[in-house]
Amino acid sequence: MNSLENGLSRRAFLSNTSKASLAVGLVGTGILSACSGEVKGDDTAVLATSFTQTPLAYDFAALQPHIDAQTMEIHYTKHAASYAKSLGEAIGEEAVDTNKPLEDVLAGISKYSVKMRNNGGGHYNHELFWKVMAPNAGGKPDGELAAAIDASFGSFDEFVSQFDAAAKSRFGSGWAWLVVGADKKLAVGSTPNQDNPLMDVSDFKGTPLLGLDVWEHAYYLNYQNRRPEYVTAFWNVINWNTVAERFAAASM
């Protein structure tokens, strides 16, 4: 599979939408108030999500042995593709303005159908998930993101402990998150099913920086019922550069 560098990059894709429309969309999203006011070039584009599925930046096998190729292929081409397809149907049925980012819809999801909630959330969550992973990644963040993690959690190890607990203790299907809250502080939490912290119906709110899919389809072929092993393996594939980009945009 071609790299996004040779195809459709995140920023190149979003540049097809006018900066004015993006600014209006992000300002109109209360949960993305970090992006309100002055829009500095394309910096806020990293926080905006298209309504269509974008190409992976790496091959299905690129995250092995931590996430196996078959799981990645099924996850991307079947599960995530289905969310994108059903979201497309929902936006047609409910006359959604797609000139604004998907985040606008999620921030007011209580006004839409269950179909929009499930598939809009599923699409957003997976689009973020692919971007926060990369081959030959993992390790620890540095710079301002590392400092913010230390300030919010006391240490990177304590952050890992809290994130692991959120992922491992989520009952049934759902997601674990690292977010920037309205107070500009980092927080860890989880949401059920395909909900996420952008939604006005969510008890846990913030601008997502990092998300981990803990639905069984994300890990069952390789890890079976051993979710904790999958959660531990995730730390080896986190793309901290992308997480840091999102942090910088959300902190504006």
Rank of each mutant, 00 (worst) to 15 (best):
L128I: 11
W215S: 05
S152I: 00
K40S: 08
S190Y: 06
A20H: 12
T52A: 09
R246N: 04
S50N: 13
V24K: 13
G108V: 05
V114T: 15
K111V: 05
S155Q: 06
G30M: 02
M1S: 15
S202K: 05
K40A: 10
Y223M: 06
L63A: 01
V24E: 15
N196W: 05
S36A: 15
T29E: 11
N193C: 02
F163D: 01
R227N: 10
Y223R: 08
V96D: 04
D42V: 10
Q64A: 15
N136T: 04
S202P: 10
A81Y: 12
G138L: 04
T207S: 14
S190K: 15
Q70G: 05
L128R: 09
Q53A: 12
N222R: 11
D104E: 11
N119V: 01
A69C: 05
G30W: 05
A166V: 07
V201G: 03
I149E: 01
Q53G: 03
A249Y: 11
I31F: 08
A48V: 04
A62F: 08
N6S: 13
A146W: 02
D68W: 02
A34Y: 10
G92H: 05
F51M: 03
V24Q: 13
K111M: 12
R117T: 09
Y220P: 00
A249M: 09
V180W: 00
I109A: 02
K40M: 06
A107K: 02
A23P: 01
L128S: 00
G7R: 08
V114A: 15
T71K: 11
E216T: 10
S15A: 13
A20V: 13
L87I: 06
D104F: 09
N99V: 08
A233S: 13
P101V: 08
G174C: 03
A107V: 02
P228D: 10
A187G: 06
N225R: 10
Y223T: 08
K115F: 01
S33F: 08
A147M: 12
G181Y: 04
H66G: 01
V24T: 13
Y83A: 09
N6I: 02
G120Q: 03
V96T: 05
G138F: 07
I67Y: 09
L102E: 04
G122C: 08
T98F: 03
R10L: 12
A248H: 09
E73D: 15
G25P: 07
A147I: 07
